[in-house]
């Protein structure tokens, strides 16, 4: 039982990663692909944060009367990764808008017949 309790956080994160990854690969609509990409990335962030958690520790902001803190390093890494994720989403959505204007559609299977995808 303790084996499960110690690892349930990672397993649920893996489950979320795979759902996001599935949406990215199987989605036919480009906007849904980007939503899938976001879900995939957010679940990777959760893996990082659950590395940093210490049982009984509190948030890494020094306050009197608190001795054990959670590890601040994963939080710094994830602050960077979140902004990278949003930057990629913004550029991806801008591309989707341009593709809609150029092709008139954002469904991936409707591109193939419009041009030869090498």
């Amino acid at each position: 039982m303790s084996f499960i309790v110690d690892h349930y956080n990672y397993w649920i994160v893996v489950l979320l990663m795979m759902m996001g990854f599935y949406v990215v690969i199987a989605a036919n609509n480009l906007v849904k692909k980007i939503v899938g990409l976001n879900i995939f990335q957010t679940s990777v962030f959760m893996m990082y944060i659950s590395i940093g958690k210490v049982n009984g520790g509190s948030a890494p902001i020094a306050a009197e009367g608190i001795t054990t803190y959670s590890n601040p390093l994963p939080h710094v890494l994830i602050l960077t990764a979140i902004v990278v994720g949003v930057a990629t989403t913004a550029v991806g959505l801008a591309l989707v808008v341009r593709i809609k204007r150029a092709y008139g559609t954002v469904e991936e299977n409707e591109f193939e017949d419009k041009e030869d995808l090498i």
Partner: peptide
Amino acid sequence: RCLTAAFRYLVMGTIGAT
């Protein structure tokens, strides 16, 4: 077609980076 090429590159590149 550079738009669909850039989009495919973005999706695969982001999966690689993740």
